[in-house]
């Protein structure tokens, strides 16, 4: 099922990481909005997908993104204790550890995925998070499939 990345026709030099960013609506999506209104500049590599809560994010969503060729996946939600739905992010955090193992077993460097908490007022933290992941992924290079 896993095949060569479908879009790696680009050469090494102009390769830019492609990042899928799942953000919860209440904190991180709002934080990303605030980054915009505050004109905080950050790398344009991430495509944000809005979900209600990080609790909504199935591990499959992350795996599927990597499978389809994402060089990195960001999951960003409210700080533990601040989830709009009280505890969705705690569940997300609990699932995360397991997910990292699965990724590693599948031969993908877990540094390609990042879980972060950024509240609606933490625009800078959000932007820094995107930057950090982009830089990290740049060091790792384009995603390569090592599992069948």
């Amino acid at each position: 099922m896993m095949t060569e990345a479908k879009a790696t026709i680009v050469t090494e030099n102009d390769w830019e990481p492609r990042i899928v960013a799942y953000c919860c609506n209440w904190c991180s999506y709002a934080g990303a909005d605030l980054a915009g209104t505050s004109r905080i500049q950050y790398p344009p590599n991430a495509r944000i997908l809005r979900v209600n809560c990080t609790g909504r994010i199935k591990p499959e969503f992350i795996l599927a993104a990597l499978d389809m060729g994402a060089d990195g996946v960001l999951v960003s939600g409210c700080h533990p204790g601040d989830c709009h739905y009280t505890s969705g992010n705690l569940k997300a955090r609990a699932r995360w550890a397991l997910m990292e193992q699965v990724i590693e077993q599948a031969g993908v460097n877990p540094k390609r995925v990042r879980l972060q908490w950024a509240s609606a007022s933490e625009a800078q933290i959000f932007a820094d998070g995107v930057r950090a992941l982009v830089e990290q992924v740049k060091e790792l290079g384009p995603i390569v499939r090592e599992w069948k």
């Binding site: 479908k6 879009a7 026709i9 680009v10 492609r18 899928v20 495509r47 997908l49 979900v51 209600n52 909504r56 199935k58 499959e60 969503f61 599927a64 993104a65 389809m68 060729g69 994402a70």
Partner: peptide, 22 residues
């Protein structure tokens, strides 16, 4: 099934991003 936020709807977005020839 999460109405208005189905697995299908979410994965369709991921696919549209990653699997369209650049």
């Amino acid at each position: 099934v999460m109405l208005h936020s189905t697995d299908d709807q979410i994965l369709a977005m991921v696919e549209a991003y990653l699997c369209t020839p650049q």
